[in-house]
Structures are given as structure tokens and as C-alpha cells.
Amino acid sequence: MIDQYFQKQDVMRRLIYALIPLFFFAVLLYGWSVLMQTAVVFAGGIATEYFFTRQRGKKISEAVLVTCALYALALPPALPLWITLVGIVFAVALAKEAYGGFGRNIFNPAIAGRLFIFLSFPVPYNAGWIVPASRGPQGFSGLFGTAQAAGVDTVTAATPLALLRTGEIPPLMDLFLGFRGGSSGESSVILILLAALFLVATKTANWKTMVSTFLGALTAAGAFFFGGLIPGLSPASFPGFSAMVPLAAYMMSGSILFVTVFMATDPITAPNKPLAQFIYGLMIGGVSMTVRTLAGFPEGTSFGILVANTFSPFLDEHLPAPKKKTRKIHPAGAAR
């Protein structure tokens, strides 16, 4: 029954498995809102993909499920559902199908969808961050979205990045475990690390791209921090080794780690040659942190990914191939 409509893709299935723990954690933090978001995203995404693949007489690619999952986990939990729907339809129809469907898209569809709704609806988008479940000395509170039940209206919560801009550093352990505001699935560092290990061990994702993206981000963040350019975080107030604290908080906030593991490694939009992948990763990390620090946007990772996506075919084209002839055929090559 499933095989009748879906094209089986093992890589995509493994990505879905890796995202499941993040999804459950998001439900733990925000409850119903995440379930509703996810339901809307999958319904909208699959329907859009079906509309196009049916005309081509093809099956739905399982890649669309990954797009849906990544997009759903990258959203503010309390985003109005119709906006969520607009974003996923844009992602699948214009960022993917317009280019010819699976394997031919230049830009990461999930990111394109998220950026489209962010630029279209900045006010509801920024009002979508709500209070997550929290971890206290008396144990957990506000699990499964009950944190909002206290107020009549949804309570907007400051994300760690917003806190850092005011000079307040959230507890590192909360950041590491993921008990903090932000997009539904981006918060838990430990779960993202475990997912990364799983993806690398099963050869689903390229570890080099992950490492270079992280390095790019860390270098840029370090340079901005010690250059005194990060608003709210003055290097003078963190002498010596204590500079590690704000820097670690900066790296664990926002969606940079989530993006490093799941978006930078997307095999369709990333280049294929090792050197190209290395530069591609540096570019994602560097641009993301630059936009996050210097531009007026709440987070810069979407821009980082899209800018690097633009350069991906160029990098593949103009960098020397590795000595051993092991490279795969570039998926985008089919479009040329």
C-alpha cells in the first residue's frame, strides 16, 4: 500500500529515524502545538508533492517526508497553522517541484519555506516562540505544553539568542539538554549529537561537511566575540578561560547545530567533491554567524544555507576532483 505511492529511499528513511527523538522531545517541550504543526506540514507537503508527481506519472519521493520533518521542527512552535501551510506549499512547489522535482532542486526546500514565511510574516513568526517545559531543582514543570496553560493567551518567550543580546547567559546545562525556547526541534544539543553519530555511522550524512560547518561557525563566532561585535556580550567581562561560557552558549543557541547536522549535509543541495564540501561547510557556518551577529534578524542559519546552496554547483564545477575516482554523479547533473 505504501510502496504503491512512495518511492523507497533508504537514505531518507534513516534521516527520518534520526529526527524522531527530536520530534518526541519537541512534543515534551510544547505538547499539542507541535503535534498540530507537524500534522499540517505533512498533510500539506505530501498533498503538494502528490499534485506534481501525479502529472509526471511518478511516485512521491520519500525525500518530501524529510523536507516536511525538517521544516516542522525548524518552526516557532506557536506559529499560526495557516502560515505553516503556506510555507510548506511554497517549499515543495517552488523550491523543489519548480526545478523539476526530487534531485534537481538547487535550494534546500525546508529552509526556503522557512525563510519565505519569515520574510512574509515577521510579526507572527517572532510571536511564535512560546515558553517550553523547564527543568528545576524540584524536577520538571510545564511538560507537554502545559507551560502555556497558565496564561489565557499564549505567552511569548525570549529565545536564548534574544537573552544573549541583553547580556544574559542561559544555564549551559539547560542549553545542552534542550530546555530552552526556540524552534520546536532545534534545542536539544545532546539529541542532535546522538542523531549526528547515527547518521555518520550509517553513512547517511557526510561527517566532513558537519565538521567544516561547525568550524566555520565557531571561527566566525569566536572572531565576532573577541572583536567585541556580539551585542550584549563584551569580551572584557569574560577574562581568560571564562570566555568559553558565552561562546559555548552562543554556539548552542539558535539553530546552528540543527542546521549543521541536518541541513548542511543534505546530499542534493551539497556539492560532491571533498574540497568543495569543506568550503561549502565553512561558508554555511561563516555566513550564518555573520548574519546572526551583524544583521537585524533573529537568526542567520537560513541565509547561511541558501547562500552556500547558490555556490554549491559552482564549487563542484571549478574545484579539482579527488585523485581516486570515487565520486558519485552529482544529482543536479541530471538537470543539466
Binding site: P80, I83, L94, A98, L119, S120, P122
Partner: peptide
């Protein structure tokens, strides 16, 4: 009604023109 900010800015015309041509 929540206005779509992107529609006020020139890039949206790119998307729409593309869709119309399509």
C-alpha cells in the same frame, strides 16, 4: 488579515512572474 510583507517587496514579483510563466 495578516499582510504578506514579502508581497510588498520587489522579490515577490520574481516568484509570481515565474509562476505565471509556468
Amino acid at each position: 488579515f495578516e499582510p504578506w510583507i514579502i508581497m510588498v517587496t520587489p522579490p515577490s514579483a520574481f516568484f509570481l512572474l515565474g509562476i505565471i510563466i509556468w
